[in-house]
Design a binder for these strands. Structure first.
Lengths: 193, 193
DNA sequence: TAGTTTTCTTGAACCAGTTCATTTTTTGCC
DNA sequence: GGCAAAAAATGAACTGGTTCAAGAAAACTA
């Protein structure tokens, strides 16, 4: 099982002993998804946090009017879930779906909590990750509040060119808070000049 | 010094020993702000996390065109800061300003980190708080992506009526992602019916 | 490699929300 | 209580972005 990636990721935040590394590895389960397979569904409690080894996933809401709104993309080395469902262990509202063939590692909520209890370093790791995620979410909010659609696309394209390449445009549009048609026009405009 | 509130808040997440409670209390500093006083300024590193004992604060960005965008409100029993600046210890981009006379408790970044190292329960507390904050931020993002201005106001008014009462309307508008003028019209419409 | 499905593009009509300018109301303060 | 400053309301003109409908291009599938 390929846990090197995830262990390296964690090593950027905390130094795990090899015993701790083993404890984690023992709890991770591998899973492979084909494009359009779902990892989570609205109405079902999200029991796992999912780490992407290879591939790309996206979480999104389908609103009452049928429109889709992307909450998150996850490519290699990112965690994804319906996070609210995961931490509260309440029914999910989001879909988590594979954008391409994807290999993931999953950690069950109960196991993650147990790890945190048993080993302070895991508690620390998940604290630091959550804090970073929160800061990121606030930045995104601010970007959407303060910048127009074109600027939002240009920025995102600078920051995450690899996601722009790999993800369907309608999904990116719904992440950036504009219609797919408008993103198409914006791309034409900006990539021309 | 009035630390009962904050200790109760923490007790909702973890059980602190009285020794741990004392360790925290010793590190907290009280501060009183008048309306329009600033707690943080863009360009200065945000060294503290601030807990509101009594009063109301708001954090916001001033964009290049001079427009204000509210990131967060904090009333009694909430934490506030320029969170990105705080966790990365980088210069802030946000203002944190008192909306009314406000009494706060402040915890220095270094002290918070030390507490986390010394006492796993603090690490746990800050993990749980950060996770909840992240889930909240994702929900807010989704609300802004998927609902129109009027619905956003109605929802916010249902969830946080006390904030709607206490906060200037232009600040609320900039939090909800609409112009102050439009919020004024929306209010008229919805409060009439 | 033809046929099917999915995604992307394009243009025209439209509208939710903005902007600007002005007036009214509320708040604070000596 | 009276004056100044800040906040809220109001209306008219405008615009950034949406919606709808239709066609073109990619991407799968057999």
């Amino acid at each position: 099982m390929s846990t090197e990636g995830i262990l390296q990721n964690i090593a950027r935040y905390v130094d795990l002993t090899s015993w701790e590394q083993q404890a984690l590895s023992a709890l991770l389960s591998t899973r492979t998804l084909e494009k359009r397979d779902f990892l989570e569904h609205p109405g079902h409690v999200c029991h796992h946090q999912t780490y992407v080894v290879q591939g790309a996933l996206r979480s999104y809401l389908i609103a009452d009017d049928g429109s889709e709104h992307t909450v998150q993309f996850a490519i290699e080395d990112w965690w994804i879930s319906d996070f609210n469902s995961y931490i509260a262990q309440e029914p999910a509202t989001l879909h988590v779906e594979a954008i391409e063939t994807t290999q993931v590692l999953q950690l069950h909520f109960n196991d993650a909590e147990q790890l945190c209890r048993d080993y302070p370093r895991f508690e620390r790791y998940f604290r630091l990750v959550a804090q970073k995620a929160f800061a990121f979410a606030q930045k995104r909010m601010l970007t959407n509040l303060s910048m127009d659609a074109e600027t939002r696309f240009i920025r995102f394209n600078e920051l995450y060119p690899s996601i722009v390449q790999r993800v369907p445009q309608y999904a990116l549009a719904s992440y950036l808070g504009m219609s797919a048609e408008f993103l198409s026009k914006v791309r034409k405009r900006t990539l021309r000049s």
